[in-house]
Design a protein around this nucleic acid. Structure first.
Lengths: 226, 226
DNA sequence: GATCTCAGGAAAATCGATATTATTTCCGAA
DNA sequence: TTCGGAAATAATATCGATTTTCCTGAGATC
């Protein structure tokens, strides 16, 4: 090991990684619309790099279910549908309940500290910084289940989280959760987790998801009727 | 639509697809050992194609959890471990139970026909044709849960199936199931499914998986002690 | 008038070469 | 002898160009 400057983890990310994160962000936020054709040439110009990293990034996104590959006709952003949304919500509830129970079973002080910190950071972040907030929000939810000792399960949960958040972005600014206190919901979940009260934590977590789900679904119906 | 020759689905697959299937097969069967470095140049020569399709295939396999990507040091076949094996078994049992119950709930005559056919084909295939048999075996198990109306869940189950079968191949020819009648187990599962008896079908299916799991685990322990 | 066929153009897939980045080897100094 | 470091080597990551494939629309045929 040679130079240990204060921020040594700050090594230049690969082009593939940059492309992956950029395209993923664009799909999640809706900047690239569902079903939209993703032309290599376009993305090349936007991201200013060769075709290979773009293709590789798109290939990665295919297995995240955010991009669909059409035989030899390139890629497109994955389609959305009420069925798909319902499916994701359902699977998420089932998998996260499992993960949360196991996580609480294996919980240790280091994990607890990490959870409290992630909660704190999320609560402090102004909701206006939407993307930054969503990042911290995901970190909080993933930390909750992180101690479950099952990397594959965590991977599935992470994927499902992203698929779900995409619908939240797409529902868009119209969203107003005025009738709910999201902050309190998170705090209650954290407290139940810290108390190692698995039943309560699961109940709160699933309500949290299902309420948001019902909210979004209502939004879709309203939109479809316009 | 133009020419509908008897075998019209026989269009030339893309290089990427060929590479994907070939490398996947080599990893599943153990031809490429766990942890082994996967050098682009080697694979290029074996598969006789350029580097791009190889990279793309490897990228696809990363998200199947069959290949690991190391920062900027290329790819290697995923490692194996008893923990990983146990995790896969556990997740598989949970997800397939869910899927099977929903599948039986949505079952219709067309699905039932398909199930019977897939069972028949599997039973007819000589066990000597290992790879062909395994293909039919997977088809049978996937058909069981296919009516569950949840593409994401099916994808997860398919991935977990492949991860599991890899361990079966690795345990290798040493396997002898003499104390069990695998054929009968499959037939019983199918019959319970045809009867729409979800409880029974799930019980039999999970026993089927867990028995095989216990068998393999025993094998690993024996191997580690050598 | 409708369908079919065949260019022409656009895009994707793939290749070969180059630039980057890790790893190994070898040499000199402590 | 051992440690460190610099050059040599090997492999990856990326690019630009070529080949292949698909899509479009104009003209011909039924």
């Amino acid at each position: 090991m040679t130079s240990l400057s204060p921020s040594d983890a700050a090594q230049e990310p690969s082009a593939t990684q940059r492309a992956y994160l950029a395209i993923r962000r664009m799909i999640l936020t809706g900047e690239l619309a569902p079903g939209e054709k993703l032309k290599i040439e376009n993305l090349r110009q936007i991201l200013d790099m060769g075709g290979s990293p773009i293709r590789e990034a798109l290939t990665l996104l295919v297995s995240d279910l955010l991009v669909e590959r059409l035989d030899q006709r390139g890629f497109r952003a994955a389609e959305i549908s009420p069925q798909n949304f319902a499916e994701i919500l359902k699977l998420r509830c089932q998998l996260e309940e499992t993960a949360l129970r196991e996580s609480l079973g294996n919980a240790n002080p280091a994990w607890e500290d990490k959870l409290v910190i992630s909660h704190h950071r999320m609560m402090r972040e102004p909701r206006e910084n939407v993307e930054r907030f969503e990042e911290l929000h995901k970190t909080f939810h993933m930390t909750l289940i992180e101690a479950c000792q099952s990397p594959v399960l965590l991977k599935f949960c992470s994927q499902l989280y992203d698929l779900n958040i995409r619908y939240r972005y797409l529902a868009g600014k119209a969203l107003n959760y005025s009738s709910r206190d999201i902050g309190k919901e998170h705090t209650d979940i954290m407290n139940a987790a810290v108390d190692r009260d698995a039943d309560k934590a699961c109940r709160l977590l699933l309500d949290h998801y299902r309420n948001t789900g019902a909210f979004l679904e209502k939004h879709f119906v309203a939109e479809a009727a316009e």
